[in-house]
């Protein structure tokens, strides 16, 4: 039973502790509460970040769930609010509501192989899941991380991916849609890596996040590889205003993406995933 907040609409003030440029137009902010510690969050959840006088946007949590000192958010400048957030410098205050939503069903992955499929910024909400898995690596079987990006210059968390790739207990593959001459890695879309990865389709939990089209392609490739729809989980994006299922904006068929998701099983959404304008 979730704990009812006194006023779920009221943001709490957080200070920008660190700001790190990730890619062109994309930064990672570390936010610390002006008072107390950050509430616990589950990998896959999101916060509503408020830029003073501009507005609020749903941004997934992308830091280590074991760390309670700060919230880590990777923000890409795509609109007025995300632009204002991405432009914040250390010392600035933001409003934070959250964490909200249902995250990745990591408990269901214990004892099984885990296949992480990320496209573009979709790696951000998956990173906490990867941290959580690595913290208890012995609980999982093979762990495969497939990452797709537009170009080598646009690979999110590139250095971290390099570090993970050095580990013998992880299979990390990164592919780009468009390669330059210096790129020696994979070229092609990330769903094409799925048949090449090493996992047991009978006992694998797949976690997918990226643009919706990419997730549809990935879902088809995962099904073709033999993973059941109930073991494939996607993180969806819809217009979120209230984050608690009261404003109606994020409806996706019968679901409220903010509270029934953002992570939902393919089994639940398969029928409407491809319906245009649903």
């Amino acid at each position: 039973m979730p704990v009812a907040l006194a006023d779920p609409f009221l943001p709490q003030p957080y200070r920008v502790e660190r700001r790190r440029r990730e890619l062109a137009g994309t930064v990672t902010l570390e936010l610390a509460p002006l008072a107390g510690a950050c509430p616990a969050f589950a990998p896959g959840q999101f916060n509503m970040l408020y830029a003073f006088g501009v507005g609020e946007a749903a941004i997934s949590l992308s830091g280590d769930p074991a760390s309670r000192a700060t919230f880590v958010h990777t923000v890409r400048h795509v609109g007025a609010v995300s632009g204002a957030l991405a432009g914040l410098e250390p010392g600035a205050t933001v409003g934070v509501r959250g964490p909200f939503g249902r995250g990745w069903p990591l408990a269901a992955a214990e004892g099984a192989d885990v296949l992480v499929v990320a496209g573009g910024l979709g790696l951000a909400p998956l990173r906490p899941a990867i941290y959580a898995i690595l913290a208890r690596r012995e609980r999982y079987g093979r762990v495969v991380i497939l990452v797709g990006s537009r170009s080598p210059a646009e690979i999110l968390y590139r250095r971290e991916l390099e570090r993970w790739r050095q580990r013998s207990d992880l299979e990390v593959r990164v592919t780009v849609d468009h390669a330059d001459a210096g790129w020696r890695g994979h070229v092609g879309v990330v769903p094409a890596l799925i048949p090449r990865a090493d996992f047991d389709p009978q006992d694998t939990l797949a976690l997918v996040c990226g643009p919706e089209v990419m997730m549809r392609f990935a879902a088809n490739a995962l099904l073709a590889a033999g993973i059941k729809a109930g073991r494939i989980h996607l993180s969806l994006e819809r217009n979120m205003k209230c984050a608690i299922g009261l404003c109606g904006h994020c409806q996706f068929g019968p679901s409220f993406v903010c509270k029934d998701g953002p992570v939902m099983s393919l089994e639940r959404i398969a029928e409407i995933l491809a319906v245009p304008e649903i």
Partner: peptide, 16 residues
């Protein structure tokens, strides 16, 4: 499969 992948690739889904 490669045709499918090409379709996804030309959509350039990660761009703004």
């Amino acid at each position: 499969e490669r045709l499918q992948a090409t379709r996804l690739q030309i959509l350039d889904v990660y761009g703004k």
